[in-house]
């Protein structure tokens, strides 16, 4: 992965602790391009997933995310499955959405859609547990 050093500017400094690598991955940015990516925003890859040779502009972690999200996944699930902090994954996902490689679906919230119908559905679903 020596190409990454050139692209991202910094070598991976083990002494500086585990946070350096994730934020190197995001080119030092700590804020997502999209503030509306929540933990339960569902993200889905726009297929086809590029193969390794076609993925010139993509980081291996971004390719992993694209492969993972061929079926919708919540942002929190993606973070857990790729072993990166949520805040880092939100930045990567924001880029992928901006690049048209993923779509994002906002969660239902009671503030937007407070309704008895939703509660009844959730109650019925939990009753089947």
């Amino acid at each position: 992965m020596s190409a990454d050093k050139g692209r991202y500017g910094h070598a991976w400094d083990e002494d500086a602790g585990p946070l350096v690598r994730p934020y190197t991955l995001t080119r030092g940015r700590t804020r997502a391009a999209h503030a509306d990516l929540t933990l339960i925003t569902l993200v889905t890859t726009v297929e086809p997933v590029p193969d390794d040779r076609e993925a010139g502009g993509l980081h291996p972690e971004e390719l992993d995310i694209l492969r993972l999200c061929v079926r919708p996944q919540a942002v929190a699930e993606v973070a857990a499955l790729v072993h990166l902090p949520v805040s880092v994954v939100k930045i990567l996902l924001g880029d992928l959405v901006n690049a048209g490689r993923m779509t994002a679906r906002a969660p239902l919230s009671m503030a937007q859609a407070p309704n008895a119908e939703l509660l009844r559905k959730v109650r019925d679903g939990l009753g089947r547990l």
Binding site: L39, T45, V46, P72, M110, L118
Partner: peptide
């Protein structure tokens, strides 16, 4: 560019 998502995809927490 969206691929149609399954109808399943609205989340609550």
């Amino acid at each position: 560019t969206a691929v149609p998502l399954p109808a399943a995809a609205l989340a609550v927490k």
